[in-house]
Design a protein around this nucleic acid. Structure first.
Length: 259
DNA sequence: ATGCCTCCCCGAGGGAGA
């Protein structure tokens, strides 16, 4: 089963690039972030016509996550538990059943800038809720993954210019520690399990010719429970998508599971 | 580099992103 996570930066602006990518790359499952659409406005027919089941958790203007799947999506839940007052659409879960059942969690972790400040407080609180959900997911002993835009640069080698991010919410020690604390519960970070080399990125800013200068950061991640990690065939970043027509500023990050 | 683009809201210019 080939699964990709992709921050598309707006479904309306990305519909042509996204459908071209789907037709070419043919993921079994695509976890999408930043759909920037309410559920009613999401063009689900375009994907259903291509054989995908569609589940969305959108909101007006920004944020929003979705799952496209060639397998039926079961037991769908929306919203990260732990704060009933949180109205931001950043989390969706569903189960797919291939050779084995696999729980999918799609996430769009808050950016958190400027730090310090209320937005950074929200990011850290959200990561604490993620830690709680991750703990429960491990306790279930299911094959499961949490994939999406984490807005976390885990290590200096995940940025072309780490010094430029020293004061940024994506790279502050407290951010990286919160991420490590989740991974260290027992998850496998799929890409790093396959490739330990520096210089692999999943985001390049639209500004300052960041793509042309390869001034990127790696912030889109797939975390696997042990039961899912046992199924890992491969993981990779589809870098060339960034150089296509009217691209998102992120590119797809993939795993291939024996599931 | 106090965001130089891009996308969203709408229908001008501001919020958000990273």
């Amino acid at each position: 089963m080939k699964i990709a996570t992709f921050n598309i930066n707006g479904i309306k602006a990305r519909i042509e690039a996204l459908t071209a990518w789907l037709d070419d790359a043919a993921p079994d499952v695509a976890l999408l972030q930043e759909i920037k659409s309410v559920d009613e406005a999401f063009p689900r027919e375009i994907f259903e016509d291509r054989g995908y089941n569609v589940e969305t958790h959108g909101q007006k203007g920004f944020n929003g996550v979705a799952i496209l799947s060639k397998y039926p999506l079961e037991d769908v839940t929306r919203g990260l538990p732990g704060d009933d007052a949180d109205e931001q659409a950043r989390w969706i879960e569903a189960t797919v059943v291939g050779d084995v059942a696999l729980r999918l969690c799609g996430l769009y972790l808050p950016n958190g800038n400027p730090a310090p400040g209320p937005k950074y407080d929200y990011k850290l609180a959200w990561m604490e809720r993620l830690h709680a959900r991750a703990t429960a997911l491990l306790a279930s002993e299911e094959a499961a993954l949490m994939a999406g835009d984490y807005n976390v640069i885990p290590q200096p080698e995940d940025a072309a210019r780490p010094e430029a991010w020293a004061e940024d919410a994506l790279f502050l020690p407290q951010t990286r520690a919160a991420f490590r604390r989740i991974v260290n519960l027992g998850f496998t970070e799929a890409f790093r399990a396959r490739d330990a080399a520096p210089g692999h990125y999943s985001f390049w800013d639209y500004q300052r010719q960041a793509w042309d200068r390869n001034d990127g950061i790696r912030i889109d991640h797939v975390l696997l429970t042990p039961q899912a990690a046992d199924l890992l065939n491969d993981a990779w970043i589809e870098k060339d998508v960034r150089g296509r027509e009217k691209p998102s500023d992120h590119v797809p990050v993939w795993v291939d599971l024996a599931a």
